[in-house]
Design a protein around this nucleic acid. Sequence first.
DNA 1: CGTCTATTTGAATGTACTCAAAAGCGGTGG
DNA 2: CCACCGCTTTTGAGTACATTCAAATAGACG
Lengths: 194, 194
Amino acid sequence: MLNYDLILKNVNKHIQLNKEEKEFFISLLHHKFIKRKDFLCRLGEYSKSENFIIKGCLRTYTLDENGVEHIIAFGIEDWWAGDPYSFLTNSPSNYYIDALEDTEVFQISKENLENLLETIPKFERYYRILFQNAYVAQQKRINQNISFSAEQRYLEFLQKFPSLEQRISQKQISSYLGITPVFLSMLKKKISTR
Amino acid sequence: MLNYDLILKNVNKHIQLNKEEKEFFISLLHHKFIKRKDFLCRLGEYSKSENFIIKGCLRTYTLDENGVEHIIAFGIEDWWAGDPYSFLTNSPSNYYIDALEDTEVFQISKENLENLLETIPKFERYYRILFQNAYVAQQKRINQNISFSAEQRYLEFLQKFPSLEQRISQKQISSYLGITPVFLSMLKKKISTR
DNA sequence: CGTCTATTTGAATGTACTCAAAAGCGGTGG
DNA sequence: CCACCGCTTTTGAGTACATTCAAATAGACG
């Protein structure tokens, strides 16, 4: 028996659903396990679902010309992950998405989302608010990227994702911050010796 | 007689309105001039409107502890500008917004937007798509901030805003890229001599 | 246990910044 | 209309931040 509490609570933060609407929504979701290191989506593939994480950790990243990974976003419990651009425009994805831990998600396909938005238009509002909040959070990150030093960005990261430091490797964190793992190691040493 | 073509065409890209709906929408807009260097919003103030730019150029920026400006976003014709966080949560704004050129906008207030979303729920969809697109564009910028050199970011800027280079000062561009004006001057020289 | 990857450390290098001074440019007022 | 003022851009020298390369150590996983 699957537990839909987390996702229903998340929806309920922004819109109110009656029992039938809840059941209809749930009927459109597909439960999936993603094992650590498995991919949800690769560059050039078509991202066919948006994914609500109930457990675990996903990352969205790019590879540069030297094969170095750059992490655009982490996704943890109670968050959505995916490539909205690819998903919504049916175009090849610009990103890789894989699992840093064994992860469980509820997926909604494009067809089902369209069905949902038509049947219960309130969900337009839900997704509007979701994107709005994500947009605001990204604006903050952009500000930090252009105005903070690497050290300040690292300290901010610890604030924003207090639980994540113990769960993922330092290399992942450095990749999210836009610095090398070597330099992050030096920063941590510098911070700890004062 | 005000010209609503640009904003109606923008809305029409995403949702279809009949004549009455158009008229109702237009009735909620307030036309405003912002003279070059005037502020639409300051840090700590309450951002009371979202602004659709019909002419001119706005910038959203922060000031760091040394008084240096960091530009989060430019807004030009056919774009919305504002601080959605402050606007939607009635909290003090984190940003300054001012005009780099004499600018004309259509403003919608929070009350009118709420009225609009209730009366014509299709607008939830319009704003959902707007934020979604903005989110995708920001993701791309974040990727560039963490994986590109300053020179690559500058060349990307020229692609993304082809018209803007002649309209605004180099200092504004450097501030958007996250580098100093001095360094941008050096980059341009380096680029032009090859 | 062995292998593979992550982390640390150190040295050398490159990228971007600070400070300072000079040159350029735009707007304003006499 | 020109002179002046303030701000932007350029240039140069010195410095700090962050990277690369390499080697050693530590951890994780089969």
